[in-house]
Design a binder for these strands. Structure first.
Lengths: 213, 213
DNA sequence: ATTTCATTCAAACGACCGTTTGAATAAAGT
DNA sequence: ACTTTATTCAAACGGTCGTTTGAATGAAAT
């Protein structure tokens, strides 16, 4: 019922406790509907600690997101690097697997999908700076790799299709997000594989049965 | 600077003025970050009018959304009905066009994309009741129609792919949303056509080049 | 032992929130 | 003319918000 925490002197890491609590609450209720007081209470730390460690509420969100997405992006870029230097020719499938499969690894799966899905749904004033900071490099690198294996698709067209792919990804991350209700690790992995298949088809587009205009 | 409006007696329709103002602010800032005071100020009506006409903030959001999406859903169902009774065999393309093209008609295009995109990004406690109310029927009818023309895709698989399709749609609606910056009516329409092509490919999945496990 | 510096703490700051109230006002019905 | 009903209004209700302050506390450095 009360707001304050029992004196908290160096037990575990205050920073990490705040990040853990904020992560769960942001995913569940969104940024605007989550108060720093609720975060501090859940983390069992003093309210002022949130500003001391993160400067502001937006700063906290950025830190929450960066902690989780940075390892994923590293895995993505490492995977792509490996593809490019291995000698075996790249395919749309191998590129997409390098892009999506890092979501499957690590034991953090429970929060990442919801976190990514949630951030994309936030107003631009909140999401845009973070999304640009975290995703610009990865997006450009993978879009270029896809352009290599899909020479028949011009760049403007590829950019559209890449957007559709990201949208499909966000949707599946959002739906499979609350790990523990109906979604298991296996159902999540299955969804990721379906996602890869769907996007390959959409990116390549067999161009059968079209009758434009 | 002040909150109140110059006496407002029966000028135009108060209800509509509130809906118009709320729509713009919800799209721009999201539900939680938009205050009823800001809505009342923008609509130039008294604060209490929002509760008088809509009962609560959530009720207002539901009304805002219903006003825009109901005509779209009507066009969708009419289009599907016409396909089913016309005699000419349905295709994935004709079904998807009946589903997506209503976004292109009407002169309300400016707000609808952002509205749909925004609502999907809101926390479940806000979005779920509205999305279920507005989309359950349309989703089921179109999913069944697709099942007819894609007999080779089993129903569980089709449900996955339908989700991916919705995700692609949301993404393009979100990106093309602030009509007037870089997005024109033509670029929006072009995006819609690309969306249809992408989703047809994903739904049908030529099944070429797969090497699953 | 004393200074230094990072961290935690309770308390408060001013602002804004959704909602309610009850009187004032207008329009319609009789 | 009077009553009824629907709408608008200013003002306030009790709470919650992000952020700031300045003292207390602890460990490390000298």
């Amino acid at each position: 019922m009360s707001t304050q925490a029992t004196t908290n002197t160096g037990t575990a890491d205050t920073r990490e406790k705040i990040l853990d609590a904020a992560e769960l609450l942001f995913v569940e209720h969104g940024f605007a509907a989550t108060s720093l007081r609720a975060i501090a209470a859940k983390a069992d730390v003093n309210l002022a600690a949130t500003h001391y460690h993160f400067g502001s509420k937006k700063g906290l969100l950025a830190a929450v997101f960066h902690r989780r997405i940075q390892p994923v992006n590293t895995l993505r870029l490492e995977g792509l690097e490996k593809l490019e230097t291995s000698g075996v020719p790249m395919t749309a499938r191998s590129i997409l697997e390098a892009f999506f499969l890092p979501f499957k690894s690590a034991d953090i799966i429970s929060t990442i999908p919801g976190l990514v899905g949630r951030l994309h749904g936030e107003p631009e004033s909140i999401s845009k700076p973070i999304l640009e900071e975290e995703f610009t490099e990865v997006t450009e690198r993978f879009q270029e790799a896809l352009a290599m294996v899909l020479p028949q698709v011009d760049r403007a067209e590829l950019r559209w299709r890449f957007h559709f792919m990201i949208g499909s990804m966000i949707q599946i991350l959002r739906i499979q997000s609350p790990l523990g209700i109906g979604s298991t690790q296996e159902s999540f992995n299955r969804g990721m594989e379906r996602l890869v298949d769907f996007c390959i088809a959409g990116l390549e587009q067999a161009d059968l049965g079209k009758q434009h205009d």
